[in-house]
Structures are given as structure tokens and as C-alpha cells.
């Protein structure tokens, strides 16, 4: 833990964490969770973009790593309670057939 906090992550490690978080966001079965996690990830990386002090960079990185583990677990838990119907936001392609049925 102490060694992890001392060393600031490289640029590619940060991008890799960003990608992993966005990929994990896709794994949620629930539309709202999927979109929330994507938004949350992007907002967090943006708000921490100005960090320059190595200490706070590595702290933010370590926090991101922890959040990634949490998200991976939660994606599995959510998949056990997946919504039976899709969100209306996911039905882009079906819209025309719905109109047809009316």
C-alpha cells in the first residue's frame, strides 16, 4: 500500500484505467447503471485532469483502481437482478414498428 502510494502512475497506466472503467460500464445489464458509470468515470477523470502533485495523482489512481474492483463486482450482482424489460432509451430501432402497431 505504501509503495503503491509513493509511485505516480504513468500516462499509459492512467489511460488503461480509464478504458477499463469504461469497459466495465458496458457490462451492466441495466441501462441506467451503464450510462451512470460512463458519466461518472468521464467526470472523475476530467475533474482530476489538473492534478500535478505526484502524491495526489497516485492517490486518485489508487482510488480509481478500488472503484474499478467495486464496479466489476457490482456488474455481476446487477446481472443477477437484470431488468426484465429494456429501458425505453434502448429501443431506438423498434420505434418505427411501435408506430406501425398503433
Amino acid at each position: 500500500m505504501a509503495s503503491a502510494a509513493a509511485k505516480a502512475p504513468s500516462r499509459s497506466e492512467v489511460f488503461s484505467l480509464f478504458r477499463s472503467l469504461l469497459r466495465t460500464a458496458r457490462d451492466f445489464s441495466d441501462y441506467n447503471m451503464r450510462e451512470y458509470m460512463k458519466r461518472r468515470t468521464i467526470d472523475a477523470f476530467r475533474s482530476n485532469g489538473g492534478l500535478s502533485d505526484p502524491q495526489s495523482v497516485s492517490a486518485a489512481y489508487a482510488d480509481g483502481k478500488l472503484q474499478l474492483e467495486v464496479a466489476k463486482r457490482q456488474a455481476i450482482v446487477y446481472s443477477l437482478y437484470a431488468p426484465k424489460v429494456k429501458s425505453v432509451m434502448e429501443l431506438k430501432r423498434l420505434k418505427s414498428s411501435f408506430l406501425f402497431m398503433e
Binding site: 489511460f15 480509464f18 478504458r19 469504461l22 469497459r23 468521464i42 477523470f45 476530467r46 485532469g49
Partner: peptide
């Protein structure tokens, strides 16, 4: 765009 946007577009 910045580097984060770049990653987002590729995703």
C-alpha cells in the same frame, strides 16, 4: 479534443 476525448471516441 483532448486525450480523454480521444479515448472516448475510440471506445
Amino acid at each position: 479534443l483532448d486525450s480523454l476525448d480521444n479515448v472516448e471516441i475510440v471506445m
